[in-house]
Design a protein around this nucleic acid. Structure first.
Lengths: 216, 216
DNA sequence: CCATCAGGTTTACGCTGTAAGCATCGCTAG
DNA sequence: CTAGCGATGCTTACAGCGTAAACCTGATGG
């Protein structure tokens, strides 16, 4: 497949591979991502990728790590208070996940004790303690906000990890919905009550943070 | 593989297939579940399963539906108040997911608008409205509690969807953890602060429900 | 100039989901 | 009693997957 003279270097890097993988993932979805197709996109055979990545799982882990890093970028100093910092982090994480929906199922199911994830947890804890929170409480707040954000965004993006648009959104299929069988759902669609994901997420995060803040 | 006289019926049912699949999933994890292996467990060739299930995805959807049904079983009457009902539901859902960890990644990533999921949402909404909650608020509470429960349980079970025990739990690898690089995490392990998932889940659910109840 | 090596390729293996066609059973109609 | 028929399971086949092993080749350092 490569039209480059055989044996010549294509100039791959781990970073380039991850870039291409992330792009492919966001365009075509997780099930469509294979080493062969990723290689093809880079003008290279599948096996070449293994010079830069030990195996497919590690590649996927790298993608999760990347998006997590993205969520951390540009956060304020936590010493201004853990509540605003955590709120900012929650919204930043949600934005990063929405921007890379293909990574979402991965972020949700990767083990929490991979080296990357441990580094991430350490950073969270450091930030929260810098804001004056005791360790146990910091663990609780961090974990609750992170898991809620991932869970909620998962439902928000809400399609099979397969390529997007395979199913229409709930509010686009009001026609096919039998009002006799689904009276409440049809009313939801008609009145558009409770379909605002932004509002729901913001409100829930504030409830959680407010609740923890009141626990002193 | 089947030692039964060729052409004889093995007596499969959709229900039997789902039973076996759920069992296999909980024992060996999602990546290990293949149509051939599932067939083998039932004493049947892989293709035979397709008489009872249109394809693998539909089979997996069926498993999610089953566990969700399990979560609904034995709930009190919602008219006794939506706060206790929702609390009970959250804990029941978490218990069902923990009992069938293989289904968790599926429950998290299946689209929210499959027919089964719609039926489920309708039931939730009906219960909440029976308890006197307005529709929009009902949507918010239901979605927030469900997504948080799934997200938190995902982190709790917390291993690659691959077979369990592939990585030790966080608190079992204190040895390998460099205290210089991970001061906070090592302290977490030493003091066991913030490692109680039960307590964290209960507390967070109560904060959420209390917060919504206070919004009147 | 030659040896080494990093990076890319080729080939191959066992596994996957599933389409198509066939064999065989139990049941029902004549 | 028998003809046929639908239901059920089996066989074969195909394209695609992740990746191990061996190989080739252009660039680099002694």
């Amino acid at each position: 497949m490569p039209n480059r003279p055989s044996g010549a270097k294509a100039g791959l890097t781990r970073e380039l591979v991850l870039d291409a993988a992330l792009e492919y993932l966001d365009e075509h979805g997780l099930p469509a991502l294979s080493m062969r197709k990723l290689g093809a996109r880079l003008g290279v055979e599948a096996m070449s990728l293994y010079r830069h990545v030990p195996n497919k799982d590690a590649l996927l882990d790298g993608l999760v790590d990347r998006v997590m890093e993205l969520a951390f970028a540009g956060l304020d100093d936590p010493r201004d208070g853990w509540v605003p910092w955590m709120r900012q982090f929650a919204h930043s994480l949600r934005a990063a996940l929405v921007a890379h929906p293909g990574v979402l199922p991965l972020a949700a199911t990767r083990p929490v004790n991979s080296p990357d994830a441990l580094r991430m947890s350490e950073r969270w804890l450091a930030a929260m303690r810098a804001a004056g929170l005791p360790l146990g409480r910091a663990m609780d707040v961090v974990n609750v906000i992170a898991t809620f954000t991932i869970g909620h965004t998962l439902a928000e993006v809400g399609r099979t990890p397969g390529h997007e648009g395979s199913e229409p959104d709930l509010d686009q299929r009001s026609d096919e919905l039998d009002p006799a069988e689904f009276p409440n759902l049809t009313e939801v669609i008609r009145t558009r009550a409770g379909l605002d994901f932004d509002h729901r997420f913001t409100e829930a995060v504030d409830i959680l943070l407010g609740g923890y803040a009141a626990l002193d």
